[in-house]
């Protein structure tokens, strides 16, 4: 079994750090401390972190923070970032207004 999915793993207690109030996800204004705490709350995958905190769910869709969040979570779990599966990619790939998404274009031919 994938090691990072082992929920019984002891990652130690949350230790506050001086840069915990630094914003990581700018669109949703999520701080480094919130992300680190989320790992200690049991969110061991990027998909869970995203659902729990909404990191990468804002306007830029994680274009800026995805790699940063990955690094923070990996460090908290004491694993390499490459071991973390990226969050699911799904439609729409870019932010889009609901009225546009619901507006099916007419056939061109």
């Amino acid at each position: 079994m994938n090691q990072i999915n082992d929920r019984s793993r002891d990652i130690g207690a949350f230790v506050p750090a001086p840069d915990d109030d630094m914003i990581i996800c700018r669109c949703e204004e999520i701080t480094k401390g919130e992300i680190r705490k989320a790992v200690h709350d049991g969110m061991f995958t990027l998909t869970e972190i995203r659902r729990y905190l909404r990191t990468g769910m804002g306007l830029c869709q994680g274009q800026t923070c995805a790699k940063l969040v990955k690094g923070i979570v990996a460090r908290e779990l004491n694993i390499s970032p490459a071991q973390l599966e990226p969050a699911t990619s799904r439609v729409p790939m870019r932010p889009i207004e609901m009225h546009v998404l619901a507006n099916e274009g007419k056939e061109d031919e």
Binding site: R90, V91, P92, R94, I96, E104, G105
Partner: peptide, 22 residues
């Protein structure tokens, strides 16, 4: 023209203007 999705059987979904085209 913003491609917002790539589905099974190479269906490409594109936002063009105020509509979504397949």
């Amino acid at each position: 023209a913003t491609v917002i999705g790539l589905y099974q059987d190479k269906e490409v979904v594109v936002r063009i203007g105020e509509a979504v085209h397949h």
